[in-house]
Design a binder for these strands. Structure first.
Lengths: 348, 348
DNA sequence: TTGTAGGCGTTATCAT
DNA sequence: ATGATAACGCCTACAA
């Protein structure tokens, strides 16, 4: 690897100044066609790749946005334990960023342990998208003092920060309402994720909304906690069933719903005949499993896209008032709720 | 957002020079404990985040590695069409990079269309991991002239570049051999991915190896091409079955295997009783579908990790001879090959 | 159309 | 243990 050549080298060989080279590469104005061609040819010939560092320093814009997401896989054991959720968000962010020529820097961080990493990322980017549970609130505040930060899927109200999220609460209310209204079920249990997860909290709140609407007693906490994993969901459902089987288990996400289906099978209970089950997120597996899991579709990729778009907007105009984007969710009817399998359509 | 404060501000308030601040932040040597504490306190108080640009420019190391992966989702329609494969690789890369304090810059590129993007990424990083089919060979060569490049899963022999990949050929040979040896099947068809995919080519080669070993006639091309997608696999299998059903369909990946299972169901053929089916990759869905898909496990996450590790090694020592890492694959027996469902264990 | 020169915020090399 | 000061590679007025 011969040292990366510089703008000086290109300028020297082209017989022009570095300013002209810079202008040519920026595709601006102020040079003749012949100069342009010569410079470009020599740059290509040299295989010159301009230094993003220097460019960023001079123009005070790196063209990089950062994405911090919660580091789950590392503590969990199996690969499938870590939600594909995040992957879709990453893809969405990537898409939105490259659409405007920016790039995405990613890092998995976990509150305390990821502090240093988070700051390291922050030093390299123009702005940051921070997913729920990836760094502490205090650190968010510190970071937000020196660069634009968009909160993603973290429903906590934070002073003056842009926010992008999905309407978890309404989704949970709708799917629970479906169970109550369409299937006449009046004995439902909610299987939650990690208690500190805002997503889990919002979904539980929506569950409660639906119970209240249906005139049913409202619990003050989820019936059990499955940590958002398939194994955790199975475990939680198993111990729940050991006591008393409800007519329906509303799960905080799809992984746990799939785990719950396993627990029902093990307990020789039929789903949905004996116990209806619903999920949340609409991951691919919900389509492949039998019975198909009735769930709530989250626009995960779009979440990532919108977050980056909001960030870019903020970068362009720092004076805008704080922005909040709440993306709609959608109930997806399959058969685990008791609907006939054929009716695999979506309804609002 | 008040302007990001600089090292000058910190130095001034601390009553020391910028050099000292730099030393303190680098956790190096050459300052008293009291100076250190004062500087750190003031830096924290100011919420100072050092500029990665300036730091990179001065130290000629950005602490960022780039990952270029093929941009599939954009052309395909549904989300699930785009292989989860890539997501795992991204996660692995992220893990390996953050383990040493680096960050990963990601971009989806598609040969010609992604040229510009690829160069933009290259300008921002210390080195590049390039996945198969994400940019053209010529562009790889150009980029490799100015920064270290590691090829990932691209089996093409490229002069002097580091390479990391999985042993597709042996995996395909083993799983095909299983069908021939354990199940006595002598009439097999290979369902390939995009003809230009090195992965697909290698797997087909392994398929042929096994046929030759079993004394069976060796075709010179896959029986059909399903583009590595579930829908494509179903379509290809359907038209294959319209002519004549083989005793086994060896699919180039899992998505197509799942599609093929759908086609068999539609044709009122039983799997594996009438036609055995195998996949490749071991994605999560292969466990959830019925029958469970016998497949070849690819260490996708590890692929990403190793690629970044090799890149970091190259960064540390540019003079090493080109490095090749071939990770082993592993046959995972489920029931779509004809084995009893209970025997869900792995074998080499 | 083109060149000159100062500045971007660090790190690193000398000194002291 | 600390301070000057010269890079680092590019952009951008301002001049010519």
């Amino acid at each position: 690897m011969p040292d990366r050549s510089t703008i000086y080298e290109v300028a020297r060989r082209s017989g022009v100044s570095t300013a002209t080279v810079s202008r040519v590469m920026a595709d601006g104005k102020g040079f003749s066609q012949v100069t342009r061609d010569r410079v470009r040819a020599i740059a290509a010939d040299l295989g010159w790749v301009p230094s993003g560092q220097a460019r960023g320093l001079a123009s005070r814009r790196s063209g990089i946005v950062g994405l911090l997401f919660p580091d789950l896989g590392r503590s969990g054991d199996a690969e499938e334990e870590s939600p594909l959720y995040v992957d879709q968000v990453i893809r969405g962010a990537e898409r939105a960023a490259t659409a405007v020529g920016d790039a995405v820097l990613i890092a998995a961080t976990q509150c305390e342990s990821g502090r240093e990493l988070a700051f390291s990322i922050a030093s390299k980017v123009d702005g940051l998208v921070v997913m729920a549970r990836s760094i502490s609130d205090e650190d968010v505040d510190v970071l937000a003092r020196s660069l634009p930060v968009v909160m993603l899927a973290n429903n906590r109200v934070r002073s003056g920060l842009d926010f992008v999220g999905a309407d978890n609460r309404t989704g949970a209310r709708d799917i629970t309402g479906h169970l109550i209204t369409e299937h006449g079920i009046r004995d439902l249990a909610f299987l939650g994720g990690p208690p500190e997860s805002p997503d889990s909290q919002d979904r539980f709140a929506g569950f409660c909304d639906a119970l209240a609407l249906g005139g049913l007693p409202v619990p003050d906490a989820p019936a059990a906690d499955g940590g958002f994993t398939e194994a955790g969901g199975e475990r939680a459902a198993r111990s729940m069933l050991a006591e008393r089987a409800p007519r329906a288990i509303v799960c905080g996400n799809d992984e746990m719903a799939i785990g719950a289906l396993g627990a029902l099978r093990a307990a020789r209970l039929r789903a949905p005949a004996d116990v209806a089950v619903t999920g949340f997120d609409d991951i691919a597996a919900t389509r492949h499993v039998r019975p198909g899991v009735t769930t709530v579709h989250q626009p995960m990729r779009e979440l990532g896209e919108r977050a980056v778009q909001v960030l870019l907007g903020r970068l362009a105009d720092a004076s805008m008032p704080p922005f909040t984007v709440m993306l709609p969710t959608e109930v997806v009817i399959r058969s685990s709720c008791g609907c006939p399998a054929a009716r695999q359509r979506r309804r609002p």
